[in-house]
Design a protein around this nucleic acid. Structure first.
Lengths: 183, 183
DNA sequence: TTGACGCGAGAACGAGCGTTCTCCTACCGT
DNA sequence: ACGGTAGGAGAACGCTCGTTCTCGCGTCAA
């Protein structure tokens, strides 16, 4: 098996397991069993579990933000694009294996003990906030609005994760709509 | 040492350690060392670690909601009371040992593996949301506003925890003020 | 053909930790 | 004074898990 293929399979299995059950309750042996990549190979690709965790978060970050941007870009009107963010969140929340925001979960689990993971979480959230800022600016709306929309989105992610419901996306969307109106 | 005293000391130590470093990275021996309560006594009071965790969350829940209500009650005007929630959050975020919302963190760490902890998190969040609902109703404001304020508060807690900053409280307060105006 | 090498399977090692056990001391009622 | 009991200190036990090691097999170049 090619090294690149083994890496992708390992990351696929790691992502499903880490996201679904938490990082610490998944052993390297679980990743091996789920991916079919031997322990020896796993440790060649990722010298320690923490690096597998980092690679998981990094790859998921790229995909998550990519898919969000792809969805938003279907809309032309700047204000619609902002609201589309919340529509996309609602679709995400409704996926059958949705278990909350992977970064918020990882932060709760590892933030206090792993500075590298904590840094990745901060970077991901900063990137998401910056993206909202760019949408707000493109709509010619006041800058502080971006932070407020960001808080709504974060609150929706947390609440959807804890309550296992997609409804917070609609609530956040409505609040965002009102804030756009006022601004 | 009295049993009740030992219980409080154990919970004090457990709370500081669990909240500050996460649950799983704190051993029962750490709790013993920090509390001065022997392992034998600890296991008499809490037959397993999970029960100590539950007691920690339960006691903190009572205190957290009590202190919030106490703060809010200083204000007479219904809309001021709503905004006071965010002021209180800002004070909390500014405390030197603030490490985010204990329940969100616990959910990220244990939600996938401990149904009892997950249930406590849901109960705590539901109680907080219900409290906001009561404030909104007392102000004669539309019901859906409560959910929107709740999302703002949750987003502020997460963001303050991840970024180690008290500013999200002010951002959320401003968004709340705008939503109150519109409603 | 052969020997060096890469790899998978799985055992092995060592640390951490939840939980229990041992042993000893101090105190209590009588 | 003394037997019984509660409690503390800390060793011990068993399990999990990250990480490494062993062994045996197949492959490929010379």
């Amino acid at each position: 098996m090619d090294s690149a293929v083994a890496r992708e399979r390992a990351l696929d299995a790691a992502e499903e397991l880490f996201y679904g059950r938490g990082v610490r309750s998944v052993g390297m042996d679980d990743v091996r069993g789920s991916s079919g990549v031997s322990l020896k190979r796993l440790y060649q690709l990722f010298p320690a579990k923490e690096q597998l965790v980092e690679a998981y978060l990094e790859r998921r970050d790229a995909r998550w933000r990519g898919q969000l941007a792809e969805y938003v870009e279907r809309y032309g009107e700047p204000r619609e694009r902002i609201l589309a963010v919340f529509d996309w969140l609602g679709r995400w929340f409704g996926e059958p294996d949705f278990r909350g925001c992977a970064w918020i979960n990882a932060y709760g689990e590892l933030g206090a003990t792993s500075p590298r993971v904590a840094g990745q979480v901060r970077a991901h959230k900063r990137a998401f906030r910056d993206y909202l800022t760019s949408l707000v600016e493109a709509a010619g709306l006041p800058g502080p609005l971006a932070g407020q929309l960001f808080l709504l989105a974060e609150g929706a992610m947390v609440t959807a994760g804890v309550t296992r419901s997609a409804e917070p996306a609609a609530e956040a969307r409505e609040a965002a709509r009102l804030l756009l109106e006022v601004a």
